[in-house]
Design a protein around this nucleic acid. Sequence first.
DNA 1: AACTATTGCAACCGCGCGTCA
DNA 2: CTGACGCGCGGTTGCAATAGT
Length: 324
Amino acid sequence: MEYHGQKIEVDSGRGREGGRGDCNENNQEIKEEDVVMELRRGPWTVEEDFTLINFIAHHGEGRWNSLSRCAGLKRTGKSCRLRWLNYLRPDVRRGNITLEEQLLILELHSRWGNRWSKIAQHLPGRTDNEIKNYWRTRVQKHAKQLKCDVNSKQFKDTMKYLWMPRLAERIQATAAATSNPTAASSSGPTATTTYIQNQEIQHPLPNMNHHVPEYLPIQLMNIEKTNSLNYSATSASSDNYSSDLTDGCYNFPINQSNNQDHSQVNQSTNQFCYGESTINPTSYNFHPGFQGFQEVDQQNNTQWMENPWNIEDVCFLQQLNNDM
DNA sequence: AACTATTGCAACCGCGCGTCA
DNA sequence: CTGACGCGCGGTTGCAATAGT
């Protein structure tokens, strides 16, 4: 039997060939055999995993149906492909979605919607399935909690103007705390208490010195100006958010109507890339003097990751609803 | 401790597209 | 050109683990 032009041995002795590619038997026989073969379904066993890994290690990926048969796996090609791509592939990343990844997922989803595989291309080691699950279990859950349609403008605005800046802030703060641990305890009052444990109710208004929708109340915006935390505003008009992805600085937020695909996967560096720039929290253009959130400890950090929504979100949504 | 509800994720399903004979 | 096949994608389901009562 041949696979990818290589002679291989199939210990099952049932390696089938036919149809396209490496198979030689006629299609009718394949269908009959599929019925007789009793294809396995459900969870994969360790033996099956080992067989698949071993086979791909020796022969590489290829036509999955052929691969499945040649490897002696009683699985559909689809099942093998899914198992390999989502679980067995050596570069698959396990574990929690990081803050950076969360931010990237939100950003890319706001741009592309449920194009999970496309989004996954920008998160090295993450699979479309994992991202999809993250979105459905975390983001949609919170939308449901807020009694808000995940596709509604209110929810999207909340993500863009509240959650994503928060994530960027958290990433910045974490980076700052890592590079200068003593600063966290010595700094004065923070610009906002958004992420300081148990302080949300005292400061229920979101930070929005960055782009703000025109329909937000003036009162809210005036209060916002008292905050020292700044995001770069690239335009006075909230209708024309620029999306210049080629200047090395990703301006936030992206105009929803801009559906052009500026993304690229930097295969050589394996970095998150967007246009010609690598996405990182600093591309949200924080004010250099930003000192907020330095009081956040690791414990609170974790809590926020688990439940990024708080009373602010409700206030924010209500504000949007009232104004629309 | 026992039961129920909820959550998270692996796996499956169906559809659409590309390729090939 | 056309039909069969393989593949990839997004949506959905099933179930084990965990939380809540």
